[in-house]
């Protein structure tokens, strides 16, 4: 890689070689490292990228076949898992539901359920709404006192958050916290509430960033559901 050439290669030529894919493996590794620390060099790379991408200007768009989009969406948003869970919503057959939830919760619950002599109660709830489109599945993991939540559909409104509430009969809702914007999340049940988890109604409300400023839900209730024993 150190062959003599009669023109010294300056940084700008190296930047162009990186963009073209002509740089040696070692240059690629060094170049990437440099780009993250050397803004001027990174700028040169970006500049060449902008210039050379013009080579694609003359390439005509070609409409890809519909199956590509189908395959892509199936890969990025795996639907099979969702549809299995959707079937679980019908709560048909405790054993099948437990099995599927075991898969959903991960290995721990599966191990618990298959350990001879132990059959802990599994509590689950489906949080739904007629209007918001938000659908969340919740399962209480009895050993860790965690509620595992999986969002099946619905999106957070920009600059708003979901807040999860546990509601016991005739009591004010207790916040279980603001939910991160991820498909699955685990929430610890406060110690004082653990023995009453079977009576929970879980609800998700729409709140400003940081959560309800008052300690009680301030926005619309987007989905709610009560616990079922599996």
């Amino acid at each position: 890689m150190t062959e003599q050439t009669d023109i010294p290669r300056d940084d700008d030529v190296l930047a162009a070689e990186l963009v073209l894919g002509l740089a040696s493996d070692k240059d690629v590794i060094d170049g990437r490292r440099r780009m993250s620390t050397d803004a001027a060099f990174a700028g040169q790379v970006v500049f060449w990228q902008e210039r050379l991408t013009a080579m694609t200007d003359g390439i005509d768009p070609v409409k890809p076949p519909a199956r590509v989009k189908k395959k892509l969406l199936a890969q990025v948003f795996p639907k099979t898992r969702v549809s299995v869970l959707q079937r679980v919503w019908l709560w048909q057959g405790v054993s099948m539901a437990s099995l599927l939830f075991a898969g959903y919760l991960g290995v721990q619950l599966l191990e618990m359920n298959t350990r001879p002599g132990t059959q802990p109660t599994v509590l689950a709830a489906q949080l739904v709404s007629d209007t918001s489109g938000l659908q969340v599945l919740a399962v209480v993991e009895p050993v860790k006192h965690e509620i595992a939540l999986r969002r099946i559909s619905g999106e957070v409104i920009p600059n708003r958050v979901f807040e999860l509430w546990a509601i016991l009969p005739d009591q004010a809702p207790v916040s279980l916290g603001v939910l991160p914007d991820s498909e699955t999340v685990r929430v610890l049940v406060p110690e004082a509430l653990r023995s009453q988890a079977a009576q929970f109604t879980l609800a998700i409300s729409d709140e400003p960033i940081g959560g309800s400023p008052t300690g009680a839900p301030t926005g619309a209730v987007l989905a709610a559901g009560s616990m079922t024993e599996l």
């Binding site: 990437r32 780009m35 993250s36 620390t37 050397d38 803004a39 060099f41 990174a42 700028g43 790379v45 970006v46 500049f47 990228q49 902008e50 210039r51 991408t53 013009a54």
Partner: peptide, 20 residues
């Protein structure tokens, strides 16, 4: 990756576009 470092400022972006 190329965007880890600050990219082009608006002036450079105009130059890059015209060079392209």
């Amino acid at each position: 990756f190329e965007l880890i470092a600050p990219g082009l400022n608006p002036e450079q972006a105009v130059v890059a576009a015209s060079e392209a």
